[in-house]
Nucleic acid binder design. Structure first.
Lengths: 216, 216
DNA sequence: ACCTGAACACCGTTCAAGT
DNA sequence: ACCTGAACACCGTTCAAGT
């Protein structure tokens, strides 16, 4: 039935090795640098050395490319927060930590990683949220967003298991944690807060969330 | 010195009464509805019955019109949060409130007003933050943003005076409050959180911030 | 002082045609 | 299966000219 071993799966692309991946990668960089407004399909095609009509084979319109950029962004975000651990050089002097890292430290590390990513990729984050908010957002995009935001859930559950976090539904606590963290990042990205390179302001904000606003 | 009472301040506009104000008002509506991408200067001019070159007399380019939209947005936001008071129908039954509204209730009312505005005007808020974040953001825009975000400061100071809020610098507490509130709104606007029409989810989030995440 | 209308250099999208 | 290149209907911006 089949021809002599001619693979249908890898046809020779005679003009570009992998235009689709190249488009996503370059578009992500452009968006991260100059925002959505800076993204031009024609300019992208020019930079990659293809005709201006070529991208439409892989992305029917501009928005679908932006969706792919957003998907890529959520994967980058997930990687950024997944690797977050309380730094060994966190306290000012010596290893004064307890047997395991306390919940507050885990949370601070997570928040720091998120805010760092958000500040470094402010425009990308805007595209990510805008894409996810769209009515016709593709399923893989929604899934990637879920995965990225599921990371703090485990930290909270561990905190509850260790008796360091109040025994309310995880979702309720996650909402407060995410709101504070994302809000902090948005305020910095929006210029309402100084960049906070040291991370001290963020650390104090997380501490306020953990300990509450009431007098003590 | 002056001519016979001829007012130089109100010259007869022979094609449009107040094109500038009309542009800002209409552009704000367009942005609030369909986002930045939906704003076209030419379409705007068409709708207002002027030539496509007319807007450039009042706004040299598209961004300066967006700046004016953002300024308008911050004024609307300030009005929205300034009028926020703890609703008399807040508790489920009867007037069980203390002699004066407690800090937690004031804060919840403020957060509710902010989130309401943010959800109703999500795209506008994006434009507001993006405009404020720009390097060459005009001074009046920055001032309007300051005024809008100064509203919670007073509530916090009153809470401290009443001994209901920890005696840390107001800015530190304001950062936590703003981050949580703005973050909550951003999550809802971004589709990460359900719209929360009842306000219960927000109320519980504010309560978590006030009381802290630790067990009690 | 304010607006018109032509001109210019860009867009995104579509689609027959090529390989 | 993938890409080219012409065509179409839009943009934002500029600027001489009108009132």
């Amino acid at each position: 039935m089949s021809t002599l071993g001619t693979p249908a799966r890898i046809p020779a692309r005679y003009h570009h090795g992998d235009l689709r991946a190249a488009l996503v990668q370059r578009a992500t960089a452009v968006v991260a640098t100059g925002g959505v407004e800076a993204l031009s399909l024609r300019e992208l095609a020019r930079d990659l050395g293809v005709s201006h009509g070529a991208p439409s084979r892989h992305f029917p319109d501009r928005q679908s490319l932006l969706d792919a950029v957003a998907l890529n962004g959520f994967q980058l975000l997930r990687a950024a927060v997944s690797g977050a651990r309380p730094g060994p050089a966190a306290p000012s002097a010596g290893a004064v930590a307890g047997p395991r890292a306390a919940f507050a430290d885990e949370l601070a590390a997570l928040a720091k990683a998120y805010v760092w990513f958000a500040v470094q990729n402010a425009s990308l984050l805007t595209v990510m949220f805008a894409a996810k908010h769209r009515q016709e957002a593709p399923a893989d995009l929604l899934a990637a967003a879920e995965q990225a935001f599921a990371v703090p859930l485990r930290v909270i559950e561990q905190g509850q298991a260790a008796g360091e976090v109040v025994a309310l539904p995880v979702e309720a606590i996650a909402t407060a944690v995410l709101a504070t963290t994302h809000g902090f990042a948005a305020l910095v990205a929006g210029g309402l807060l100084e960049p906070d390179d040291s991370g001290d302001v963020l650390a104090r904000t997380v501490a306020l969330l953990v300990d509450g606003l009431r007098p003590r």
